[in-house]
Simulated assay, not measured.
Amino acid sequence: MKLRIPDADVLWESLPDTRRHERFLTVGPEDLDDLNHVNNTVYLTWCETVARDHASRLGMGTQALTELGAVPVARQHVIEYHRPARLGDRVRVRTALTLHAGVRSVRAYALDRLNPGDPPEGVRLAECQTEWVWVDPHSGRPKRAPGVVGQTFGFEPPAPRPPA
């Protein structure tokens, strides 16, 4: 069975800034495998890094989430590889939070090469989707993310303030 990865490109423009993040990097020698292209595990590392950068940018890094009493842990990754990345390639890694409900959150990722001569939108290297499950950081048991998490990432409106 082939799992469908949401099209991060379609989602990208329609999502608020709080639901999306991107980072640019250059492929280094440490990213390569014996075939002289980026190792498949490196793509996953890049996806996790852009997700962490996104959370940190919004003040929702691991420490803040631990203090709030719920942290995300990966339940499932689905990656579809399209083309290899090679030494010196400039890569854009985008993530878009596509779902946040109950104890689950889902992120879509798009990894594109942006070398001179490539089309302006880049050349698609890979797409990924990760399902995250929120858990209590002490017990490891599933737990709903606090409302402030959904609010911070743009899924829920802020709670109304009581009248003064």
Rank of each mutant, 00 (worst) to 15 (best):
T45E: 08
R4Y: 07
T49Q: 06
D118Y: 02
P142Q: 11
L125Q: 03
Q151K: 10
A96D: 03
D89G: 06
R20A: 08
E48Y: 02
A55Q: 00
K143N: 12
L15G: 02
D9H: 12
A8L: 13
P162K: 06
P72E: 06
Q151I: 14
L111M: 15
H77M: 13
A70Q: 03
F24V: 12
E131I: 13
W46I: 11
E30L: 04
R19L: 06
H138A: 15
L44K: 05
T95F: 00
L125N: 05
D31P: 03
T26E: 15
R23D: 14
P158G: 03
P120N: 11
R75Q: 14
G150L: 06
H37D: 13
M60L: 12
P157A: 12
V10W: 04
T66V: 12
F155D: 01
I5T: 06
G69E: 10
L58Q: 03
N115D: 15
V149D: 02
D9V: 13
N115L: 03
P119E: 14
T62R: 07
T18N: 04
A108C: 09
W134V: 06
V103C: 07
H138Y: 02
E121I: 09
H21R: 07
V123T: 14
L3I: 12
V133E: 07
D34P: 10
G88H: 07
R90N: 14
V135E: 07
R86C: 14
R144C: 10
V148K: 08
T95Q: 05
L68Q: 07
